[in-house]
Each structure stands twice: as C-alpha cells, then as structure tokens.
Design a protein around this nucleic acid. Structure first.
Lengths: 138, 138
DNA sequence: TCTTTACACTTGTAATTTGCAAGTAAATAT
DNA sequence: ATATTTACTTGCAAATTACAAGTGTAAAGA
C-alpha cells in the first residue's frame, strides 16, 4: 500500500502529488497512445525508465485507482494493466502536454497526430478516450 | 545556465523534462491564479517548498524562457518574475490538472473558479491567459 | 551614523529518490 | 529436464530533496 503525502488541498497540488514526476504520465501515454499494457512493454519505451522505478509507479497508479492489474488472459506469468475511468480522464492533461511540447519544445511529432489535434482538440480527446475505454474492456 | 537533459523527442516527454516535477507547475499556478511575482511570495504557498528548490526551479524556468527576471520597480533588492508567452501557454495544462484533481482527488476547490470552469473551459483558459498577459506587462 | 529589517538567495548536511547492474522466482516452451 | 520468458527485487553509488542556518545587499528606523 503506497501512501501518498498530500501537500495541500489545492487541486493542482493534489494532482501533482500523483502525476507530478518525470515517469508517471509516460506510462499513461504508452497505454493511451501506444496501446501498451504490460511491464515488459513499458520498459521498451525510448526514455528507458529503470525497472524499480517502473514497478514503484505501477504500484502507486494501482493504489490510486488509476489503473488495475490482472493476470493476462494468455499467460499466467504475465500481468495486464488497464486504465480505469480515472486514468482515462488524464487524457486531456496528456493532450495539453503534447500541444505545449510541440509548440515550445525540441519535440519531434507524429504529423498525423498533430494534424488531428490541430483540427480539433476536443474531438481528439474524445477519440483517444474512447479507444482507451475500449482497450480497457479487452 | 541550467542544461536540461532531453530523454527523447516525444513531445510529452520533452514537456515533462521541464514541467514534470512536484514544484514547477505550482510556481506557475501562483503566478497565474494568485498574481504572485516574487521569491518571497512563492515561498508563502501552502505547500512550503524549500528555498533551494525554489531558487533552482526559478533558474530553470528562466533558462527555458518560461519566465523572465527583472529588478522590481519599487526596490532594487527585489526581483519581479514575469511569464513569457511560453509560460502563459501552460495555462491549459494547469486548468486540466485542476479539473482532474477536483474530480478525482481529495482537493478542496474554490467554488467560484470551479463554476467558471464548468461553465466553459475554453473561456476560463482565455480569461486567465489574458489576465496573465496583462500582469506580465505591469 | 549605526543598527535593524526586508529580501533573495547560498551553503551544509542528512534523508530520500533515482539509475544502473545483477539476481530471484514462477510459468512456459523445447 | 533444461532453457527461456516475464515480472519483478535487491544492492549500491549518484543525484536530488528537505531542513536549518548563514550570507549579502538595499532600504528603513533610531
């Protein structure tokens, strides 16, 4: 049981108590935009997160009800992580990070996604939330 | 000169390289929603950030062009921090954190702001960006 | 003028967190 | 039976954070 320390009652602060680090939102990104769902898949990302940090973050995300952990349907030695509705609702945050990083950072962006976002942010949010919800049922 | 390490070219990752910690966005929150602009004011927030961490984050934010530092108009021993346009454009990210924290966290929220957000997110984003831009000119 | 206060940091040090390499353990595959 | 896959755990050095105290400069007060 991972007890999180709450620094204040400000909603921004409480959000950052959970999401405010360099790794957590990358795990959620991998689930939403890359369809990943296992420990091994998360480790393969370009940012190369350490195994112990990944294990720790997955435990926090689970204890906070952002994702669930279950034995995979194909293998008993494998676990599947799925987004809860609380997790799906981080999509707008992630989308805003994409837009800001694209505009102001040294990022290289997938042109397809960028066009989609520029065409309509709300539509893109809904699309990726829908896909994530469908994936969560599988 | 604070050199940031870039972990990948993903826009989410590059955004988190700068904003992904527990303190940076709280400084921006204080500038946008509380009109704060000095080191002393930032220290007085409910979350009680350490002085060395504040100094470090302000230096990073300045080096990344998210805010500027200038001698205050009233006192030569005082500095005023102002948001750049890059800084103003973090407002949508902060607003999404407010909405998520309000809905899913243990946060206690200002009812006025919440009503404003529920009435129309885009309008709220524009309002606080406008206020921040005006403040930056003062 | 001398002292005190206000403000913005810097420094030192202990505790915590991270990054890296290696090891463990259960379930499959060969 | 042995090897491999998958998901971690462990140990340790390095980096970061938290906490307390100190420094330096400008302004204000006696």
């Amino acid at each position: 049981m991972k007890a999180l320390k709450q620094r204040s009652t400000c909603p921004i602060s409480t959000s950052l108590d959970v999401l405010g680090d360099k790794w957590t939102l990358l795990i959620l990104r991998d689930m939403v935009f890359a369809g990943k769902s296992t420990y091994g898949q998360f480790l393969q990302s370009a940012e190369k997160m350490a195994t112990n940090v990944l294990a720790d973050r997955l435990a926090v995300l689970e204890s906070q009800g952002i994702l669930t952990k279950a034995v995979a349907s194909d293998k008993k030695s494998k676990f599947t992580y799925r987004l809860t509705e609380k997790g799906v609702e981080t999509v707008p945050i992630i989308i805003e990070l994409i837009l800001w990083g694209t505009k102001h950072g040294p990022a290289v962006v997938d042109p397809g996604l960028l066009e989609e976002l520029q065409l309509g942010k709300d539509a893109a949010v809904e699309k990726y939330q829908r896909l994530a919800r469908e994936k969560a049922l599988a």
